[in-house]
Nucleic acid binder design. Structure first.
Lengths: 157, 157
DNA sequence: CAGTCAATCGAGACCGAGTCTCATTATCAA
DNA sequence: TTGATAATGAGACTCGGTCTCGATTGACTG
């Protein structure tokens, strides 16, 4: 796990807690340090494991209680790719309008931005009487590497 | 539940079963009659309930075993909108390239087609080294009706 | 620095969609 | 009809996630 300096994000979240009159506990600190100490996407279970390395008293319940606060603050992005778990992106504040492509076979996720796509989505939504809250283009695909290998289940790309 | 005449779809599925040396059982008949006897999207649990009205011996396990066969045959489309259940579209063969917008608040689903969107998706995927297997644009949005009402949880649109 | 008390905690029961097992039943080709 | 075996139902099980409840603790007060 890399340890980028996302002090700004961490401080923003602490301010978010204070603003909502929520307490800064040792467990929340451990979770927040973990979240903003990585660049990687992660699942709730991964976060639990990593946070416990910093403070073994962190419980599953607290992780699941803290995750909604992190997404509500806008600093972490929650994604659902139709697998049976959700994926979280701790790097969201830096590039808030990105979409994702996921490889059905090896779970590789690639992020991209496209103004053209955003425009088209907004146009269609408006025409149909919706106002876009969030959009998620999910392209289930096979990545090139996989086509070469024939099979790439859980391979490290 | 409307009862459209989707005899063609039903026969195609029976042919699909035969081709794979799978048996045509009374339970499968009940399930298939149910699926192709409606235009509506449905969940696995709804299908179980409806199929049991035709044949009370149909079990949950058989419904869950038959659904993958229906999607594999290409006659029914499985969708995942990030809720904790999947949604099935029995009308898929008639319009196979459509996308969906879902209202986060009232679960209303609207289908639409857009060649421009399909092209853009393919272009982006290719550029990033993926070959598209299936694509699903999921726009989580609020529908107009809801904005007017202020709140529309589970309202019938 | 002690006192207060609601916010927060951990453990584990619980939930619900979906899967799996296994003994029994039913399909269908011969 | 019969035999091989696909398919069945009941219910145990899995697993991500939620909820409950009694114990703990952060943060403010004096």
């Amino acid at each position: 796990m890399p340890t980028p300096d996302r002090t700004a994000a961490k401080e923003k979240f602490m301010a978010f807690l204070e603003e909502k009159n929520l307490r800064i506990t040792t467990q929340r600190r451990a979770i927040v340090d973990t979240v903003f100490g990585t660049d990687q996407h992660f699942t709730a279970e991964q976060l639990l494991e990593w946070a416990r390395e910093r403070d073994e008293s962190v419980s599953r319940a607290t992780v699941y209680r803290t995750l909604p606060l992190l997404t509500e603050s806008g600093l972490v992005h929650e994604m659902d790719f139709g697998k049976d778990y959700k994926i979280y992106d701790p790097n969201y504040a830096d590039h808030p309008n990105h979409n994702h492509i996921i490889c059905d076979d090896c779970d590789k996720i690639v992020e991209f931005e496209s103004d053209k796509l955003d425009e088209l989505e907004n146009e269609i939504s408006h025409k149909l009487g919706f106002s876009v809250k969030s959009q998620q283009l999910r392209i289930n695909a096979s990545c090139e590497e996989m086509k070469k290998l024939g099979e790439c289940k859980n391979k490290d790309h």
